[in-house]
């Protein structure tokens, strides 16, 4: 079983993203369960969403304490939330970051680091506003590119079907992020 935690802000679409990803995983014949942080979320506040992926039906109904992968939709959260909490040694961190990755406070001796400029992709495709770009679908593409847990084709199709608006642009964001995500070594 692979356990994944998404960090975002209320209104950024982390929960929608985790649902789309679950659908894509299930369409490829695997099993997925996803749930939001059981909180009282507000727009702009740090939120989390969780995803389990397995080859077998998933029966665990507990929260996730030791994720294998962490996805960070907003790099500013690194200063607010311990996004590495419980992350398994050798686990992966996928961060939306367009700057110089050596400036990110990630212990690269312990974790694999992937970066993608999801904000740049979202702005370029007109997803969200200039001040509040919607990066969730780009981050899904980055997730698929970094982990290969789901194929680009399935993810693009699921996003095109399931995105609440701008379906083509969101599918495009998936592809661009899939192709541009890179591991920092």
């Amino acid at each position: 079983m692979i356990e994944i935690r998404f960090h975002g802000r209320g209104g950024q679409g982390a929960v929608v993203a985790s649902k789309l990803l679950a659908r894509a995983v299930v369409e490829e014949g695997k099993y997925a369960v996803t749930f939001p942080m059981y909180g009282v979320e507000r727009r702009g506040a740090p939120v989390a969403a969780f995803l389990r992926v397995d080859e077998r039906p998933i029966r665990l109904k507990t929260l996730i304490y030791e994720p294998d992968i962490v996805v960070v939709l907003d790099p500013a959260l690194l200063a607010l939330v311990n996004v590495f909490e419980g992350l398994k040694e050798g686990g992966s961190v996928i961060i939306n970051y367009g700057g110089d990755p050596s400036r990110l406070p990630v212990d690269r001796g312990k974790y694999r680091l992937f970066v993608v400029d999801a904000t740049g992709i979202a702005l370029d495709l007109g997803l969200g506003s200039r001040t509040n770009p919607i990066v969730n679908t780009a981050m899904l593409g980055a997730f698929a590119g970094a982990t290969r847990l789901v194929s680009l084709e399935t993810l693009e199709r699921v996003v095109r079907e399931g995105a609440p608006a701008k379906k083509e642009e969101n599918a495009m964001a998936v592809r661009r992020a899939f192709e541009s995500v890179r591991e920092v070594t």
Binding site: F35, I58, K61
Partner: peptide, 11 residues
């Protein structure tokens, strides 16, 4: 159950 089922997505 609240959230554990109500807001959790499963196949």
């Amino acid at each position: 159950e609240a959230f554990i089922l109500s807001h959790t997505v499963e196949p």
